[in-house]
Design a protein around this nucleic acid. Sequence first.
DNA 1: ACAAAAGTGTTCCTAGTACACCCATGG
DNA 2: CCATGGGTGTACTAGGAACACTTTTGT
Lengths: 254, 254
Amino acid sequence: MDYKKQLVEFFKDVDERCILGLSIDCVIFGFYDNQLKVLLLRWKESDEWGLPGGFIYKKESVDVAAQRILEERTGIKELFLQQFHTFGKDVRYNRVEISRKLNWPDNSTRLWPDRTVSIGYFALVDVSKVTPTADFLTDEYQWLDVEKLPPLLFDHNHIIEVALKTLRVQLSWQPVGYNLLPEKFTMPELQRLYETILNRSLDPRNFSKKMRALGIIERLEEQRKGGAFKSPYLFRFDKEKYKKALKEGHLAFS
Amino acid sequence: MDYKKQLVEFFKDVDERCILGLSIDCVIFGFYDNQLKVLLLRWKESDEWGLPGGFIYKKESVDVAAQRILEERTGIKELFLQQFHTFGKDVRYNRVEISRKLNWPDNSTRLWPDRTVSIGYFALVDVSKVTPTADFLTDEYQWLDVEKLPPLLFDHNHIIEVALKTLRVQLSWQPVGYNLLPEKFTMPELQRLYETILNRSLDPRNFSKKMRALGIIERLEEQRKGGAFKSPYLFRFDKEKYKKALKEGHLAFS
DNA sequence: ACAAAAGTGTTCCTAGTACACCCATGG
DNA sequence: CCATGGGTGTACTAGGAACACTTTTGT
C-alpha cells in the first residue's frame, strides 16, 4: 500500500528536519450549535481520532511551529493561540498498541520514538472562517462536542481536559469570544458560549448587563430575523477595547 | 585542569542517559529580609550566575525530573513545585558566547546542543529548611533579591520574569505562603510577603481581616518578643484548610 | 392565538476599600 | 519617656446575585 511505504519516508524526513522526541499538540476550539467543539483528525486507514499536531523544525521557535501547524490545519493566520502546558509523562503511549490501532505494519513500531514530550497549545477559532485540512497521517477531520468525546489516541483526552480547564480559568479574568464567534453575533449566542465554557447557566439580565458594562462590545442597529420570536439585536466586538481588556484582565465570573 | 577534562565526560554521560535538546530550569523562590529571593548558582571558574537546572532521564517523567533536580539542589522533598511555561525560542543562547563567558576551552562549543528547549518550573520554599547544594557545573549558590538581579546566563532573566508573573497571577486567586514562610510567622511578615510578590503596599487592617476571614491560618497564644515595640502574635497555617483553598481558589487582590 | 425566545430594571447583600488611633516593648 | 512597629473597627461603595414579566415574531 502506498501510504504504508510512504510512512517510513515520512518519519525519516521528520527525524532529519525536526527535533526528536518533542512534539506539539493543538487543541483547536470552535463554537457552533451552542456547543464548544474541538477539531479532531482521523488517522488514515483506522477509526482512531487524535488532535492535530506536529513537530518542530530544528531551527524554528516552538511558538512559530505551533502557528505553522495551526495554519496548515485551519488555513487561518490571525488567531488566538496560547501555550498552556507541556506533557512529559514517561509513558504517554504504547508503541505496539498505537501501531496496532492504526493498522500499521508490525515492523512500524520502531518508527515511534521511545517517548515524546508534547507541548500543548490551544487555539480559539471562528469555525466559519476555517477550512480544516487533514495532514499526511490523517484523512478526515471533524468538529466534536467537547463534552462527548470518544477515547482518543495517546493521552489526547487528558490534553483536552487540561486545555479546557485553562480556558475556564482564563474566562474568569479575560474576555473570550472574539476569536470564537463570527463578526456579528447576538447576546444570547455570546451567553451560550460562556455557559458552554463555564458549564453552567447564567442569568440573561445579569449577563447582558455585565457584558455591556465591560465596554468591549457594541450593539448594532441590525437585528437577526428568522425565528418565530422576537428578533435579537446583533453585536460586534470593539477590537481595540477587547485587546485592552485582554491585557488588563478583570471579569470574574465567580 | 580536572574540571575541564571532566566536562567532556559529563556531557557524554548526559547525552547517553538523558533526553537531548530538552532541559528543565527551576526558579526557586524563598523569602527573608522582607524580600523575595531566587536561588542562583555560580558556574565553576566563572563569575556567571544562572538558574538551577538539569536534564530528564530517558525513562523519567518530566515532573519527576523537576522534583529530582529540586531535591538535589535544596535537599527538601515536600515542596510546592509547578510547571509554568516551556521556553522554546530557536535561539536562547549563543554557544560561542556561553563557552567564553564560562571560560571553557575553545573546543567545548560542540558540547552544547544547537538549541535547547527548556521547561520552566517554579518552587516556593522555606529558606530556613533548605540546604542548597551546587551541582557539577557550579560551585557556589546565593539567594538573590528578585528585584535586583544581575544579567544571568542564557535567557534566565526572562524565565524568572515569567515565573514571577505567574506567581503574581496565582496569588490573586490562591493562597501563597505555606511553603515560603517558616511554620510560625507573624501577620506583618505574611503581609510583607504579599506586598513583595504583588509589589505594592497593602492596608494592614484590611489585610489582617481578609487573611483571617479566609480561615486558613490560626492565631497562636505565643507572641514573638524581641523588638522595641508591641509583641506580634504568631500564626500558623491550617494545612488542611490551606490545601482546600489551594484547590478551590478565590482570593482576589485586585 | 399560541409558542418560542428576546429583552429588560430593581432590590439585596457581600466584599473591597479607605481611613486613624492607641498599645506594648526595649532602650 | 520616647521611638518603633503592632494591633484593631467602622462607614462607605461598588459590584455580583437573585428574581418575573412583557415584547416580538412566525406559524
